[in-house]
Design a protein around this nucleic acid. Structure first.
Length: 196
DNA sequence: AGCAAGATTAGC
DNA sequence: CTAATCTTGCTA
């Protein structure tokens, strides 16, 4: 079942935890891809120098200040895109970066997009990799997960064997400022999280 | 106007 | 370890 507004309208740190185990679903003309979220990072508005929203609203980060459940896609290093889910009770300027997925459906389509010889474990184990595998691009920026071709489904939507998960909390990856803040969350023992 | 750094990844 | 090479923010 597609998750609604109530799921997203909450404290960003809580959303980053609650997103683990849910399913990102993208329907396109090429086919449908589904990935289970196994790794996330929270980016806050206050006291978080690593966040794009740290210096206020700009043209680029404006989607972060819109409704919870919206999508924020940004271009980085002149090469890659990263995918975020906007959170917060109001338009707080906070979001959750999705860092890794476990491929569930459409693995052949993911390989078509990423490379035919790439193993399932390597298809979505990084923020820019999963964007490419899922067929997400700049056109999804500022769209909503509440409706449209890109959606988030609850934990019971697809059977993946394990029902109970343990969540590990650590510091975030790939940042210099705010590197000491424990805002990264992942599913313990998952084979699909990004490398450290 | 110029420049350095950035929520990354693939390939020497 | 480094190239790839876009956007932002700071300095002049």
């Amino acid at each position: 079942m597609r998750l609604d507004k109530n799921f997203f309208q909450k404290n960003t740190k809580h959303l980053a935890r609650d997103l683990l185990g849910t399913f990102l679903v993208h329907k396109t003309q090429e086919g449908t891809t589904v990935g289970k979220i196994v790794e996330t990072e929270a980016y806050l508005f206050k006291n978080d120098p690593a966040s794009h929203a740290a210096r206020g609203k700009t043209k680029r980060n404006a989607p972060m200040f819109e409704a919870a459940g919206n999508v924020y896609v940004y271009f980085i290093y002149g090469v890659h895109y990263c995918f975020n889910i906007v959170s917060g009770k109001e338009h707080e300027g906070e979001a959750v970066l999705i860092r890794a997925l476990e491929p569930i459906k459409g693995i052949e389509l993911m390989q078509k997009r990423r490379g035919p010889s790439i193993l399932p474990k390597e298809l979505c184990n990084g923020p820019a990799k999963l964007v490419q595998a899922m067929g997400i691009n700049k056109t999804h920026n500022q769209s909503s997960l509440l409706n449209g071709p890109l959606a988030l489904h609850d934990k019971n939507s697809f059977s993946t064997g394990k029902s109970k998960i343990n969540i590990v909390r650590t510091t975030r990856i790939g940042i210099n400022l705010g590197a000491e803040l424990p805002l990264r969350f992942y599913i313990q023992n998952s084979e699909f999280i990004s490398k450290k």
